[in-house]
Computed example of a mutant assay.
Amino acid sequence: MLDDEARRTHVTDSPTTWIVLGGFTDGDADGAPSGLAVHAADAAGDEPVDVLALENPTWITPAPRGPLLYVSHSARRTLSAVRLDAEGTLQLVDEIDIGAMNPAHVAVGPDGRSLIASCFTEGAVVRVALDEQGAFAGIDRTWPLAGAAPGATHRNALQSDAEPHQATLLDDGSLLVPDRAQDVVHRIAADGRHEIAAVLRPGSGPRHLVLHPTAPVAYLVCELDASLVTLRRSGPAGEALEPIDVRTVLPPDWFGESAAAAISLDAGRHRLYVTNRGHDSVAVIDVRDAQAPEVVGWLPVEGATPRFAGVLPMLDVLAVAAMGSHRVDLLDPGNAAEGIRAVRRALVHAAPACAVAVAR
């Protein structure tokens, strides 16, 4: 349970923007800060203000109100609530065993009263209730997804029974859940009903999905065949998906192994960014024609295994986390949109997997 101090929402006339990094702690940190780390956004160096020794904090979602960050732990069965105060100090204030292994992604429900964890290894989506202060109030519901797509071929040897990797929330309270193992996107309605929203190419491995803010389309990155799929959205909440375009996010002269990972949309600059682990690059994709994206270049990554790339709108930077090189680069997004890699700042972190910007 949250203590009284953690329940208070910190209010300040001049909030500070903090960059919070998480990463894997199972491997060799090579001397880098490990766990959950906070950096001042306006600082010049790479030393964190605070580090919290959590195990494998690989996804971070700020609470819609108040001082809490919700953290998922890869290869564990735990979610944590962490308080970030105005001085950049981290404090673990609540945790819950969700009964399912490897929550790869966590999202706050549309009403702010629940968390949605996509548990990759367990093949399940778990909804956790939150109380009025944002503390964990227990497991509300679990959706096992193994066998939910009867036509799944598991054509790639890496695919298991079900591997949900993310949940995207729609305005009607439903969820869109890419499933790397069954090559589908699931839709879980607000009342709990399940259906298949889209079927992708066998062996493609759907991983993460983003919604275009104005056009009726969604973009889906498929990990195993390193492809980008454009889906036309229809229905009252855009819940119906129709694949209308697919293309590789790798250069035409690349013949090595590579797997796509993250996807991020910079709507103002009409650009999508997709990371390639193996080619070790960020594909830059023009989406001025929202239904016909075009790969226009590749940003080289200073390091190996870019698991994460995300636009941090609060700072107007593109954060790229090279998990294999313990490095997070903050890139100028204007240059990145033109295919130019311009590093504003580099941060050291052990096996980084995610980055968020938070004002306190």
Rank of each mutant, 00 (worst) to 15 (best):
V49L: 12
V49G: 10
V49R: 14
V49T: 15
D50R: 05
D50L: 07
V51A: 11
L52G: 01
A53P: 12
A53M: 09
A53D: 15
A53S: 11
L54M: 06
L54N: 02
L54E: 04
E55M: 10
E55K: 11
E55A: 12
E55R: 11
N56A: 12
N56K: 09
P57Y: 01
P57H: 04
P57N: 09
T58K: 03
T58G: 07
T58P: 03
T58N: 04
T58Q: 01
I60G: 03
I60S: 08
I60P: 06
T61S: 12
P62H: 02
P62D: 08
P62S: 11
P62K: 03
A63S: 10
A63Y: 00
A63L: 11
A63F: 05
P64H: 10
P64T: 02
P64A: 06
P64G: 07
R65L: 13
R65A: 13
G66L: 08
G66Y: 07
G66E: 09
P67C: 12
L68C: 08
L68H: 02
L68E: 03
L69Q: 01
L69C: 03
Y70S: 00
V71Y: 05
V71A: 03
S72R: 02
S72G: 06
S72Q: 04
S74R: 13
S74C: 13
A75E: 15
R76Q: 13
R76T: 15
T78S: 07
T78N: 09
L79K: 00
S80F: 01
V82I: 03
R83V: 05
R83L: 06
R83Y: 05
R83P: 00
L84V: 08
L84N: 03
D85G: 14
D85K: 07
A86V: 15
E87F: 15
E87Q: 15
G88V: 09
G88I: 06
T89C: 15
T89E: 13
T89M: 13
L90D: 03
Q91G: 13
L92M: 11
L92Q: 11
L92N: 01
V93Q: 08
V93D: 05
V93K: 02
V93L: 06
D94Y: 03
E95F: 03
I96M: 00
I98D: 01
G99N: 10
A100C: 15
A100H: 14
M101K: 11
M101I: 14
M101C: 09
N102I: 12
N102R: 13
P103Y: 06
P103W: 07
A104H: 11
A104E: 10
A104P: 04
H105R: 10
H105S: 12
H105L: 09
V106I: 08
V106T: 04
V106F: 05
V106Q: 00
A107R: 07
A107V: 11
A107C: 11
V108L: 12
V108N: 00
G109D: 07
P110C: 13
P110H: 08
G112V: 04
G112N: 05
G112F: 04
R113P: 02
